[in-house]
Amino acid sequence: MSVIHAVTDTAGAYAEYFQHPVSGGAGPLSGLSFAVKDNYAYEGRVAGNGNPLWKATHAASQETAPAVRLMLDAGANLNGFTLMEELAFSITGINAHYGTPLNSAAPDRVPGGSSSGSASAVAAGLADFALGSDTGGSVRVPASFCGLFGLRPTHGRIDGTGLLPLAASFDVPGWFTRDLGTMLKVSASFGIKAGAGRVPDRLWIPDEIWARLTPQVRASFAAVLGRLEALGLEIERSALPGLPLEDWLQTFRTLQSYEAWQANGDWITREKPEFGPGVGARFEFGSKISEKAFQDACAHREAIRAEMDTVFAAGTVLVIPSAPGPAPKIDTLEPELDAYRGQTMCLTCISGLNGYPELSVPGVLHEGAPVGLSLIAPRCRDQDLLALAAAL
Score class of each variant (00 low, 15 high):
S144L: 02
I289K: 03
S189R: 05
E43T: 14
P335A: 05
S115F: 11
Y42N: 00
A119G: 13
T254Q: 09
G325T: 04
R381F: 01
P206D: 01
P28A: 10
W175C: 09
E86V: 02
S290L: 02
L240E: 08
N77M: 03
G280T: 11
Y98M: 03
T316M: 04
F252P: 14
T100C: 13
T182S: 07
E274M: 14
Q62P: 10
R301L: 05
T100V: 15
G12E: 00
I4P: 01
G44F: 00
T251P: 03
A168S: 15
G99L: 04
E86N: 09
G137L: 13
S374H: 00
A223Y: 08
A96W: 15
V371N: 10
P378K: 09
G132N: 02
K292T: 13
S138T: 07
G156F: 06
E367K: 11
R381Y: 08
E229V: 02
G48A: 13
V36P: 09
Y98Q: 11
A263N: 15
A314V: 07
E63G: 08
P241T: 07
A13M: 01
T82G: 04
S120T: 07
S133V: 02
R140A: 04
E86A: 06
W248V: 12
L83G: 07
G286E: 12
V217R: 12
A196T: 12
I158N: 06
S360P: 00
G342C: 03
R270G: 02
T57Y: 04
P153M: 03
G342W: 06
A260S: 12
L29M: 05
R152W: 04
G195F: 08
L53T: 12
R253N: 10
L231G: 12
A391D: 05
L131Y: 00
G99E: 04
A222E: 13
E271L: 06
E16F: 13
T251S: 08
P328I: 01
T161S: 12
T310V: 13
V371I: 14
P107A: 07
T316A: 00
E85P: 06
R69C: 03
L249V: 08
G278D: 02
R282Q: 05
P357H: 01
G342F: 05
F170N: 11
P52K: 11
M84F: 08
E274V: 15
S322C: 10
G342L: 10
R218M: 05
W248T: 07
T254P: 07
E271I: 08
C380W: 03
K55W: 09
G25T: 15
R202T: 10
G363D: 04
D171F: 11
W54R: 12
N77Q: 07
G44Q: 03
P101E: 03
P321T: 08
T310E: 11
A35E: 04
H300S: 06
N79Y: 07
S169A: 08
L240Y: 01
R253Q: 14
A88D: 00
P244H: 01
E234P: 10
G75F: 12
D247E: 11
G352W: 05
L87E: 10
V7Q: 06
T269E: 15
A194L: 06
